[in-house]
């Protein structure tokens, strides 16, 4: 039985990764799971300088999921290189760096700074809904997407994944724009914009009013978008959005995903990543599947 997958020349021992912003750089979850088991760790967004993020409250629970408005708080790329790469390199797993910025220049700065560093892939975050500049502002306009992706691709010395926003009318258009800008792979979906109001206080729960929704409730939307994108681009697709179990993950693989990522499920089940890996293996064994390519993209 072979759970290995190859994405843009990078070998993964299994298709299971972590979704950026839900797993830090792995330290916190290393108390609960053996990071050696994971296909890859997609780290929390890294910017060229430290970002303070948004005011609290940043979290709201909603039916079957949650809203967040963290605003990409991070200690910056220099800290990441000094502290997080050596930590993650103790483990046999791929390191995928989520890159964020307020402007094309800032995205490019991060990617330049990471040149020659011991990481496996880059993931361009043009889909965070919780920052006023950059993030989703770049990821919902096809011309902007093509511009930022091509500027970053020129400077990148690692395969470039572009993470897409679901907050668009037609995900296949933004997916194609990212690919024509030079994306080596795509990941989707980032969070769906959402809101919650405290009716007793008569005000929004989140300090920034609107946040990004994630969790099991968004899975059908994510799966539909992954399916549509897999049908219209030739690059590998990493599927995420509400995946909590092996069954969820297998749905995304059948829809065409080369890899999958676990996000919010980590919060309510700290061992979710390993549970999904073991569940995929069990499914393969029970159904006589020798290689995931036998089921990948089998849905017409």
């Amino acid at each position: 039985m072979n759970t290995k997958v190859n994405i843009c020349g990078v070998e993964f021992k299994n298709p299971v990764m972590t979704a950026s912003g839900t797993f830090g750089s792995g330290r916190e979850y290393s108390e609960f799971v053996d990071l050696n088991r994971l296909g890859g760790v997609v780290v929390k967004g890294v910017a060229d300088k430290p970002w303070k993020g948004n005011d609290a409250p940043r979290i709201a629970e909603v039916y079957g999921g949650m809203l967040n408005s963290v605003g990409l708080q991070n200690p910056g790329v220099d800290y990441f290189i000094k502290e997080d790469i050596p930590f993650l390199r103790q483990y046999d797993t791929n390191i995928i760096v989520n890159v964020c910025g307020h402007s094309i220049e800032e995205y490019v700065n991060v990617v330049k700074r990471l040149r020659g560093e011991d990481v496996d892939m880059l993931e361009l975050n043009i889909s965070c809904p919780n920052v006023s500049e950059g993030g989703m502002a770049f990821g919902t306009d096809c011309t902007m997407i093509e511009n930022v992706v091509s500027a970053v691709k020129k400077e990148a010395d690692k395969p470039l994944i572009v993470k897409l926003s679901p907050n668009v009318t037609d995900i296949t258009e933004t997916a194609k724009a990212a690919v024509s800008g030079g994306a080596d792979a795509l990941s989707l979906i980032n969070t769906l914009t959402g809101m919650k109001i405290d009716i007793y206080k008569r005000k929004p729960v989140l300090s920034r009013k609107i946040g990004g929704m994630s969790g099991p409730a968004v899975k059908p939307v994510a799966l539909r978008m992954v399916y549509q994108v897999c049908k219209c681009v030739d690059v590998p697709v990493i599927g995420l959005g509400g995946i909590s179990t092996a069954e969820d993950a297998i749905e995304f693989i059948m829809a065409g995903a080369a890899g999958i990522a676990i996000g919010t499920a980590n919060f309510f089940n700290p061992t979710a990543t390993v549970n999904v890996i073991e569940g995929i293996e069990k499914f393969m064994l029970e159904h006589g599947i020798n290689d995931l390519s036998e089921i990948r993209g089998i849905i017409d």
Binding site: R27, E31, R58, N266
Partner: peptide, 10 residues
């Protein structure tokens, strides 16, 4: 959300 420092919510 997570209680262990990963989500950076609190």
């Amino acid at each position: 959300a997570c209680g262990i420092g990963a989500c950076v919510g609190c």
